[in-house]
Amino acid sequence: MAEKLHVPYEPVVYAKNAEVLEAVKTGAADVAFTNASPARAKLMDFAPVYLRIELGYLLAEGSPVKDVGEIDVSGRKVGVTTGSSSDAELSHDLKNATVVRIATIKDAIGQLTAHQIDAFATNKATLFEMAEKVPGSHVLQGRWGEEHHAIAIPKGREAAGDFLRGFTEEIGESGLVLDAAKRADLKGVITP
């Protein structure tokens, strides 16, 4: 993208996703490649979606759950990252299970391992990485939704819209995104 715009590429690393979103919202960052949720669309503008990833559950060892439809049961504790799109959606959608807000993925791994939560919900790319650190856990087959990744820019930069639409179309048609996902062994990618 930087090459096409003839500008220097300067990556900025933030410790938390909330910091990335704040940087885009305030204009401290020019672009971010992130989940394009309805809540985030109120704070920033998005190009078209370039990547879709399944949303699912990581189950603690010994879980009796066999199907996504069995998650919303009274007494079941489902972890989500505080303030995440999973938090917003599942806090609304789950009527019987208890949604447990957890500060970090590292904390979620600890709570799953200690059986303080029964499941953790987020995108499957993250869940498969977590599963490697939680003995006996497994990612439940099926999905409860999709995460849509798109390029985010600060509000008020409408002039960038045409460029971003064209760029997104180009990286999709060229296979760049799916090739990168395959090289990275990104799990849960929904292919067109």
Rank of each mutant, 00 (worst) to 15 (best):
V78C: 13
V78A: 12
V78K: 08
G79A: 04
T82W: 05
T82C: 00
G83W: 02
G83E: 06
S84A: 09
S84R: 00
S84E: 04
S84C: 07
S84I: 04
S85N: 12
S85I: 08
D87W: 02
D87A: 04
D87T: 02
A88P: 01
A88M: 13
L90T: 05
L94T: 07
N96A: 15
A97K: 06
A97Y: 04
V99H: 09
V99D: 12
V100L: 06
R101N: 08
R101H: 09
I102N: 02
A103L: 15
A103K: 14
I105M: 11
I105G: 09
I105H: 12
K106A: 14
D107F: 02
A108Q: 09
Q111V: 01
Q111C: 01
Q111H: 07
Q111S: 06
L112T: 09
L112Q: 08
T113P: 04
A114C: 03
H115T: 07
H115Y: 10
Q116P: 01
Q116E: 13
I117Q: 05
I117V: 14
D118Y: 00
A119V: 04
A119M: 06
F120L: 02
F120M: 02
F120S: 00
F120D: 01
A121R: 07
A121Y: 06
A121S: 15
N123C: 05
N123K: 04
N123L: 08
K124E: 07
T126Q: 12
L127V: 02
L127S: 00
L127E: 01
L127Q: 00
E129K: 15
M130W: 11
A131N: 04
E132A: 15
E132R: 13
K133C: 03
V134E: 01
V134N: 01
P135T: 07
G136I: 11
G136A: 11
S137E: 01
S137M: 02
H138N: 12
H138T: 08
H138G: 10
V139P: 08
V139S: 08
L140Y: 08
L140K: 06
Q141T: 14
Q141A: 15
R143I: 00
W144E: 14
W144R: 09
E146P: 03
E146F: 13
E147V: 08
E147H: 10
E147Q: 13
